[in-house]
């Protein structure tokens, strides 16, 4: 990734000047990652915010050679994961209902999927059900599935990030994906679609 390398060099040269570009470049990914883990736009924004603030605290202390040597993507996701886990441990995450109190589906935050034909073809409803079902998965499966299928990390990268054997990661992803299929199917039967 050329841009990422440029960002790393710019950060090493002048962290204060390049940091905004780094946030601009990564905010969409980090926010989407946090949103799919928590299901809550508010929690996701706070996690993303915390992630970048922690990133800045590190970057502003590091010597240039340490910044140049970092793997930015893995590093940022690592921070985001830690922030997410800390919040789960503190039970400060709001529980996301699948439906709002008045019975309507929880509204998805703004996104740009309408501009992409292959996404537009998929119903907004399926997307919404998938997001809700994903949040209901056990955390270890959810993290593995989101990293693999939403964020597109390889199994090896995920294994490194989570400090787990690759086989364990694969098992979590497969089981998680299977549970998603089953949950979506059950839901269809229940509502009689």
């Amino acid at each position: 990734m050329v841009l990422e390398e440029e960002l790393v060099l710019a950060l090493a040269a002048n962290p204060g000047q390049a940091f905004e570009a780094m946030v601009l470049h990564w905010q969409q990914r980090v926010y989407a990652f946090a949103l799919r883990l928590t299901g809550s736009p508010q929690d996701a924004e706070e996690i993303a915010q915390d992630t970048f603030v922690r990133a800045w605290r590190a970057l502003s202390q590091w010597p240039p050679e340490r910044i140049r040597a970092m793997r930015m993507r893995a590093w940022l996701y690592q921070i985001a994961l830690n922030v997410f886990r800390n919040r789960v441990a503190r039970r400060s995450l709001t529980v996301i209902p699948l439906e709002s109190p008045d019975g309507r589906p929880v509204i998805e935050p703004a996104d740009d999927w309408r501009e992409r034909p292959e996404v537009a073809a998929e119903s907004a409803e399926l997307r919404q059900r998938m997001a809700a079902t994903l949040v209901a998965l056990p955390a270890h499966m959810r993290v593995a599935v989101v990293l693999r299928h939403v964020e597109g990390f390889t199994y090896r990268e995920i294994a490194e990030l989570l400090e787990q054997p690759e086989g364990t990661v694969k098992a979590h992803v497969h089981r998680g994906t299977r549970q998603l299929r089953q949950a979506l199917q059950h839901e269809r039967v229940e509502v009689g679609v």
Partner: peptide, 28 residues
Amino acid sequence: DQPSPRAIVQTLHNLRTVLPPATLLPSV
């Protein structure tokens, strides 16, 4: 009625297209 594994993966992949709130960068 069970969605195919491919459809599941595709839908999951598409969950990545979500815009961060405009307040994120300023507050950071």
